[in-house]
Design a protein around this nucleic acid. Sequence first.
DNA 1: CTGAAAGCGCTTACAG
DNA 2: CTGAAAGCGCTTACAG
Lengths: 341, 341
Amino acid sequence: MGKKRLATIIDVAKSSGVSAATVSRVLHGTAVVSPDTEKRIRAVIKDLNYAPRPAARQLVSQRTNTIGLLLPEISGAFFSPMLKGIEAGVRDTGFDLLIHSTHSDSNGEVPRQASRRALGEHNTDGLIVFPGSIDQAEMRRLHSVGFPVVLLHQAAPDGTNFPMVTVENKSGTLHLINHLIEVHHRQRIVFLKGLAGHEDSEWRERGYRESLEAHHIPWRPDLIGYGGFCEEGAYQTMLKLIEAGVQFDAVFSGDDDSAAGVLSALRQAGRPVPEEVSVVGFDDMPFSRYLSPPLTTVRAPIEKVGLKAVQLLVACIQEKQYQAEVLFPTELVIRQSCGCL
Amino acid sequence: MGKKRLATIIDVAKSSGVSAATVSRVLHGTAVVSPDTEKRIRAVIKDLNYAPRPAARQLVSQRTNTIGLLLPEISGAFFSPMLKGIEAGVRDTGFDLLIHSTHSDSNGEVPRQASRRALGEHNTDGLIVFPGSIDQAEMRRLHSVGFPVVLLHQAAPDGTNFPMVTVENKSGTLHLINHLIEVHHRQRIVFLKGLAGHEDSEWRERGYRESLEAHHIPWRPDLIGYGGFCEEGAYQTMLKLIEAGVQFDAVFSGDDDSAAGVLSALRQAGRPVPEEVSVVGFDDMPFSRYLSPPLTTVRAPIEKVGLKAVQLLVACIQEKQYQAEVLFPTELVIRQSCGCL
DNA sequence: CTGAAAGCGCTTACAG
DNA sequence: CTGAAAGCGCTTACAG
């Protein structure tokens, strides 16, 4: 029950009657070892339940074999598949995954200087960075010291050329809005945007505008609202739009989380979907097909984004070739909230 | 742009004209250092962008200052608040968080021997363990070597006394089913369970049975189905029940994820909720209030569970007092899917 | 095929 | 208040 001292490579070496160097060699397959001794050593390793201490390896190899994930906060349905993809990538490549949220602590304190150091060159070999988790100055510093970083759903800031991975937001939205206009003859389409600087939101807004323009539908500022890419924000905004008497026949909520809020507000206001109002989202989350009515949306392969980000980062770390930017294609998923079937 | 060698404590010491020991002292506040030298050292640290290498610290201190999180797979709405709580706890206590999913890799391979070693005594000071991520033999081994572990939503296996944290499943369900029976006069209540061995599911089933018994309602095997605590499983099962002609006037879906599937199936089958069928869930996820109709459910403070788990684990690690078991109270949240309002 | 030795970057008694 | 020295557990040339 008391803590047992962990076996070290020296323990294994002694029990096997060899030197630590030889044990190290069988551990890494880094040199030929006679079959006999190898077998003996492996038996002892198992017997002693020996596992190399990463700390010691890190110190001598100057590599941590660890990837850091930096995020502003953990929330939204989006987060889960993203992490799932990242975790899968990390597992495939044999790296460890260290996670840190730069959000305020549970007492609501803002992060101090110390937290800037939570993840960095001292404890990881590279970083995957969510939008909003570190500022541009830190990104530039990381870039200037040549530290591997890959960006998720955001472009590299000026002065850096970090690779980034995201999804085809603009064309995905374009097809989505085209569908609303061409098939369902919608003309007054609300768009609910995210926070200023939210790049997914910005690209989706561009797709929205381009579709309107292509169909010679005037762009109306009163149809643009803030949804915050979350249920509550979208819900509140829709209630206000309705109360303000804004006329609309469709809503593109920005993403699927907020589509749930939109649907809820419309239901509460007695506006039948899709008969009177079409509602569409973006992402195609697991719950989206189970909304009422089932949500027409754009499928974004978020798990793949996470997986790819790890692969790019590992390529950076290993100084191999890698793509500077990968944009995963998105796909229109037609269900019933738009008015189809 | 090339990789710069990171500053070491020796670099700081030299630039400050002191020894490494003194630098170490100001870093830890572990001894009084003259104000002058301290100020000088701090300036150099900042100037050189020095951060201590955890690997070196770990090696000498024999502590990793990191907590490991072991999970079977990342999915479900449940996961996000749980991780959020864990991350908050870890941040508050100054530990790092290493995450590993024991799920098959992205090629569908089953985990090999190696992955048993992904997280353990060699690279963490303690483990938070999700159900299904490690087997009982490994738990017993961990226990026998005195390694700190806290269990989430599962009881400690025989032969171990690891602390566990979860929520009041049984009484929460009891109140939920009582509400259905007493207020809405439901008599034929479907229960959708999770996988065999899923302890939350088992406790909820007990609460369900106790409520029925207390109201002298016979327990009917044909009303028990498998929902798997996920949208799809619940959806399919409901479709089958309906097709089989099973009579029911309410559904307790097991959790909120599956409630979305139930609602969807019922809608598709043309069974109005809540007029003809009451539907209730468990967890109170962010999306639940936005379902149609808004879901009556039981609020489970999952984020608190995660936070508490970290606190218990840290107490174990620091050999302080800790509770052997913490059960967070749950609370009935009445919305409209049960038939209220 | 194998071992002795140096060294990775830190902390911690031990002296002073 | 401060420094010299040992040592944490490993890997890696260097010899043989």
